[in-house]
Design a protein around this nucleic acid. Structure first.
Length: 640
RNA sequence: GUGCCCGUAGCUCAGCCGGAUAGAGCAUCAGAUUCCUAAUCUGGGGGCCGCGCGUUCGAAUCGCGCCGGGCACACCA
């Protein structure tokens, strides 16, 4: 890869790496790589029940907790209308929603049921809504049900509903927001997968954080998650790595190497690897032909790079469950098995590749290669799985790799750099071909994360891959801290490009949303300490003494479970970050009410009932902030 | 040339499996601290949601076509 333009970009996002030492762990690395599961390639088709849309009943897919309760009430009311003949039986309720209205003055919950059902029912929305309003208003938890606009029904809920929700937060504590949405299904998330040829740099950072946060989020939403790293240790780049290390090995034995030749990795991080090998092998391989040392050096160098990478990931709090080796996959004959299986179904054939489009290659000439019929599954052209020298292409191995992953997962997510967008169709085609023979293919998504432009005070940070001078992830974490890096990476959707300005995230740290959220938590903790000093603490005994301001805060907090489920369903961890920002803002605003009106402060020494209730609320808000930050892998500090 | 992503306030971005008057932070202007942390809060100004057509009771959101920016287009990885 080569740095193009003035900002960081990485040619191969699924290939890269970090820096550290050839330490104790290197000994264990081969074992870490031996985690490939032995699974027969052709597999029985999986039966998936994730998508069956219940044609009837069960409105909404996102209705945890409180929202689920009221969706249930709505269903009951609709049933009553059906029984009374007001509403034809059997209409689909799939499009009905129960959500908080955008404008809080409209009430606590709103439903579009009347508008959705009016047309199939052959009536008009407002007439249907009126009947539904009458039915809903019978429930004691609903203090008012109003018809609004084109047919919305706005509901106001009794205070007791919110008090109960607050108690639920306290009872569930760290589990408030956890859901069974995933039904225990296993999701394999492949992320980072940087080439093991050097240190992790900032180009890897975003995908690493997004993948890790998504994994945590999906676990919280009821999935089993496998966090997987695909080690590209079989291509030409690891031979280059081995040669680069051999040079450092000779250097360690006293040879003056001078400038690192073109075509080798120049980075200093390879020096300790060479030193280590020099100590172990002495001068045994100094003049030996490459064939004698290449395999060993490659193995040792990759192991050392992976130790570095894992250490760098650890700085961000990231740990994978599984490192799968491309070399081992090939050694186990998986790509060949996949080829045979596909050939038997005429999905691989020998044919000529089309000439590349949009550019002219001097040395282009048509060659016959084994091609996968990816066009049959939506790709633009068929793709080679082997090179003319008989070795596997990256795609050929990747295809077998995904086939293998699919055998032990109910769904798969790959997190890739945007520069890989061009290969999404072929891998999706491969997964569809290999898992969909007898039914629905395994759900498989590729999430693309866009480039991060590194800036310092608005100026692009210059980097040169050639000289080995690039911004490492370790450097950035050291400079700005894990929490800032993680939160910043999660405050926008991954498929949008983003800037990362050191000056902004560090020097202007007070404007950084991560501190804003952490401050809310710290403030509550501080208040608890102060209260304890006064001999007071949270108490759930007089929650009825909470007022309007407190109830508004509870209403917002109560949205956490559905926000989490929505984020998990959309595979968008950044939604959690935005919710936390909203929650922190609401808390800070509530806090400041006490500035104007002393009777609204948390601690009122003369009134232990109200103080206890407010502290109880505060404790739940703090818990919620902790829950949300935990999903993002960001610390909830107690003091700032 | 082809494919994918993006286009929303001066800037950076949420909102997008259709819903009510389009939001936040920064910047800017005007205010709040005898008080549990002011790393905070309150308020003002600021928008053809890139453009056009279509679908719909209803479009920032869905479809089509343009325009602009980015990424990619080898048997590399």
């Amino acid at each position: 890869g080569e740095v193009k333009g003035e900002y960081l970009r990485q040619r191969r996002f699924r290939n890269y790496s970090a820096f550290c030492l050839f330490g104790v762990e290197a000994e264990r690395m081969p074992a870490a790589l031996s985690t490939l599961r032995a699974s027969a390639l052709p597999r029985e088709p999986k039966k998936f029940t994730t998508s069956p849309k219940p044609a009837n009943r069960a409105p909404m897919s996102i209705t945890p907790m409180l929202y689920a309760t009221f969706a249930g009430h709505l269903n009951t009311s609709l049933d009553a209308l059906e029984a009374a003949g007001t509403l034809p039986a059997g209409l689909s309720r799939a499009a009905i929603t129960v959500e908080p209205p955008r404008d809080p003055s409209h009430g606590d919950l709103a439903t579009n049921a009347a508008m959705v059902l009016a047309k199939p029912a052959g009536t008009n929305p407002r007439a249907l809504a009126e009947a539904l309003v009458a039915e809903l208003a019978k429930r004691p938890e609903i203090t008012s049900a109003d018809l609004a606009g084109p047919g919305f029904i706005n509901l106001r809920l009794a205070d007791a509903v919110w008090i109960d929700e607050l108690r639920a937060m306290a009872a569930l504590a760290a589990d408030y927001g956890r859901s069974g949405m995933g039904g225990g299904k296993t999701v394999n998330i492949e992320y980072v997968s940087a080439n093991p040829t050097g240190p992790m740099h900032m180009g890897h950072c975003r995908g690493a954080v997004v993948g890790d946060a998504l994994a945590t989020l999906l676990e919280f939403a009821g999935h089993k998650v496998i966090r997987e790293y695909y080690v590209n240790d079989a291509g030409g780049q690891v031979d280059v790595l081995a040669r680069s290390v051999h040079l450092r090995y000779r250097e360690a034995l006293g040879e003056v190497v001078g400038e690192i030749p073109e075509g080798l990795y120049p980075g200093d991080y390879l020096v300790p690897v060479g030193t280590e090998l020099a100590q172990e092998f002495g001068d045994k391989y100094v003049t030996a032909p490459e064939a004698e040392w290449l395999v060993e050096f490659r193995k040792r160098a990759v192991a050392a790079m992976l130790v570095m990478i894992r250490n760098d990931l650890a700085l961000l709090g990231i740990r994978h469950d599984l490192f799968s080796s491309e070399a081992e996959l090939q050694a186990a004959g998986k790509p060949a098995e996949a080829e045979a299986w596909l050939r038997a179904r005429d999905l691989v054939y020998d044919g000529e590749l089309e000439a590349p489009k949009g550019k002219t290659l001097d040395d282009w000439e048509p060659v016959e290669l084994p091609l996968f019929r990816s066009t049959k599954f939506g790709d633009d052209q068929d793709r080679p799985i082997k090179k003319s020298d008989g070795s596997w292409t990256y795609f050929g191995a990747d295809l077998a790799y995904h086939f293998q992953k699919a055998a032990s997962a109910d769904a798969m997510v790959d997190i890739w750099g945007a520069d890989h967008a061009g290969t999404v169709k072929r891998i999706k085609a491969a997964v569809a071909a290999m898992t969909g023979e007898h039914g629905d293919p395994i759900p498989f998504e590729v999430k693309l994360v866009q480039m991060v432009q590194l800036l310092r005070g608005g100026e692009p940070v210059k980097m040169s891959k050639r000289s080995g001078n690039f911004v490492t992830l370790a450097d950035v974490v050291r400079e700005v801290g894990k929490d800032v890096v993680r939160f910043t990476m999660l405050t926008r959707k991954p498929e949008a490009q983003m800037d990362f300005d050191f000056a902004k995230v560090v020097e202007a740290s007070k404007d950084n949303p991560v501190f804003y959220v952490q401050y809310a938590h710290a403030r509550i903790c501080s208040t608890m300490r102060k209260a304890a000093a006064e001999g007071m603490g949270p108490s759930g005994e007089h929650l009825e003494r909470l007022g309007d301001e407190e109830r508004e805060l509870i209403k917002l907090a109560a949205q956490f479970p559905r926000q989490v489920e929505a984020a998990a369903q959309a595979r968008e961890p950044h939604r959690v970050a935005f919710f936390l920002h909203d929650l922190a803002a609401a808390f800070h605003a509530y806090w400041n009410v006490g500035n104007e009106r002393p009777e609204k402060r948390f601690i009122l020494v003369q009134d232990s009932e109200v103080t206890g209730a407010r502290l109880f609320l505060g404790a739940q808000i703090a818990q919620l902030v902790r829950n949300g930050l935990a999903l993002l892998g960001v610390a909830a500090v107690e003091e700032m």
